[in-house]
């Protein structure tokens, strides 16, 4: 009888999934990169320094991987957690004390912190290698938006445990919106926006109200941040990441000396 792996690789099922022999020779190592959906993000061959860890620090890749970890653990947490005043805190408490996979919360939280750090390191490396210079200017701009989205993802998620740490951090953070020039009710210039002597920008209509859905961090805020955190921002980030990776390829691959 032939060895087991040959039987598996020779079976019709395996062949229907992988349309090429094992990537052990040069030809098939090229073919695998071209036919596999996940691998086709990459080029077939690449400059040696483009994959040198001491050059890229792998930080963009690590950030992306952490985004995937956050997506997977986040979806699992969503099965458990209910974003209401009644349940939010208790669900998190139960994740810590009774739920069998409660450690998912730890992974999700530390992964989020790590992602903020790695995205900064990635930006740091891109700057230090001058990789934002032509032709990669636009990808840097996309990167800056991704950086912002990463911070917002982390910020909106911070509220969800609904403990003292959460609501006061969000209160401090969102108080800034109150001082938005013109759009915050305690911001410079907002007093000038009046209609027939009635203030248009009040604490129930300003930028902070829009962010919180209420005058204080409350149930409306929890709902708003939940939707932003679980749906809106991840979708936007995923789209921009796709463009970011596409542009890395189209701008000539990882930067290198001319």
């Amino acid at each position: 009888m032939p060895p087991l792996d040959e039987i598996i690789r020779g079976s019709q099922i395996w062949k229907s999934v992988f349309r090429h022999p094992a990537p052990v020779d040069r030809r098939n190592r090229v073919v695998v990169m071209l036919t596999n959906f996940f691998l086709h993000l990459h080029p077939v061959s690449i400059k040696k320094q483009g994959i040198s860890l001491s050059y890229t620090w792998c930080m963009g890749g690590v950030t992306f991987f952490l985004f995937l970890v956050e997506t997977v653990t986040g979806v699992l947490l969503m099965f458990y957690y209910r974003p209401t005043l009644e349940w939010a805190y208790n669900d998190i408490l139960a994740l810590r004390d009774v739920a069998s996979l409660g450690i998912l919360r730890e992974i999700h939280r530390w992964g989020a912190h790590a992602m903020v750090i790695t995205v900064w390191l990635h930006m740091y490396r891109v700057f230090l290698t001058g990789s934002y210079k032509p032709p990669r200017e636009f990808n840097w701009v996309i990167g800056v938006v991704l950086l912002l989205l990463t911070l917002l993802l982390s910020f909106t998620g911070y509220l969800l445990p609904w403990d003292q740490l959460a609501i006061w951090a969000i209160t401090v953070g969102s108080n800034m919106a109150r001082a938005h020039p013109f759009l915050g009710h305690e911001g410079p210039g907002s007093a000038l926006l009046t209609l027939d002597g009635i203030d248009m920008i009040t604490n129930a209509s300003d930028a902070r109200f829009g962010l919180l859905g209420a005058r204080f961090v409350g149930e409306e805020t929890l709902n708003r941040f939940y939707v932003l955190h679980c749906v809106a921002i991840p979708l936007a980030a995923a789209l921009l990441m796709a463009i970011h990776f596409w542009r890395v390829r189209k701008d000539g691959g990882i930067s290198g000396p001319l």
Binding site: P23, R26, R29, V30, V32, M33, L39, H42, P43, V44, S45, I46, K47, K48, Q49, I51, S52, Y55, G256, P257
Partner: peptide
């Protein structure tokens, strides 16, 4: 970095 500009296959080196 310039010394390293030969090309290598992504599979297996990068993958």
């Amino acid at each position: 970095e310039k010394l390293d500009d030969e090309k290598v296959l992504v599979w297996p080196d990068l993958v």
